[in-house]
Amino acid sequence: MENFYTLHYSNCLNKLRKDYLFIFSALTLFFFLALAIFAPLISGVNPIIAKSKDGSLKFPAFNSNPGTENYKWAIYPINPYDENKRDIKCFSSPPGKKHFFGTDQIGRDVFARVIYGTRAIMKVGFYSTFFSMIIGFFIGFIIAWDSIIATVFRLIISIFNTLPPFLLLIIVITLNGRSLENVIIAIVISRWGYVANAIGNWCKYFISMEFVQAAQIMGRKSWQIFIKHLIPNLTEIFLILILVTFSFSILMEVSLSFLGLGIKPPTPSWGTLIAESWDQIISGDGAWWMAFFPCIMLAILFVSLNIFIEKLNFAFNPEKKMLIKK
């Protein structure tokens, strides 16, 4: 028997398969994901595959502490620089054969820094989305039913939601200091309320539908209604919330880094790269490539993420209504 999911989702997929913009955005997102995962294969000082003196095959690029060793032979990444290696012969050199995206004022390879910056963004995106969703999910279910706890939570959420998220982020970072963990914590703190609200409102919407009342009349208990009737109807909303939260986290990470509140240097992040070049551009010895490439990457990632979300949103919903407003 075909079940609803295969049927409905294959319908959606069929619709999306013909949509070139959607396919393009999906491919771009995959490209960025691959870039983050396989960064050491593209750019780095350690070989991808190497035959060591004792005859065994090694993969030093994926080894966090490969050490220095002489290999019989080795295949190196295309770009033989990692994010912090300095080329002392080229300071602020424009894009060229040796440095695809040029170098910064202290001789670091911009190409390598941009690629490793993807990692930072993805990490922050994944962790903040994961925790925001988990917290938001449970609290969303609590506020879907009327109770005193729900009222308290709703009050807290409305306080959190009225504060500009960025202000919240800055406060948390200033209190806790700059680090990857603190950026994630700050994003989760400013985001869980939004997720909880969305889940709570959608639950409320489904609870008010007559099929839930039919289940109550049959004698179903609340938790059975929750599992049988609510969760299955929330899957798409959940997926889109994940994507929207992911896109929010990335934006926040970049903005924080730009303001110098993000991940601690020298770990590269696109926001930091743009900020560093900003100083240069303002002081007159403009090195346009330092800002240009991270900006382009950021723009491509954002546009494709937004197209992806929008297309999914519409495909799931034949009435052309957005499931989740950003």
């Binding site: 609803f4 007559e210 099929f211």
Partner: peptide, 15 residues
Amino acid sequence: MIFQDPYASLNPRMS
């Protein structure tokens, strides 16, 4: 009970 709205009274995720 029989409900008013034939679209809202059946769970879209159940056969």
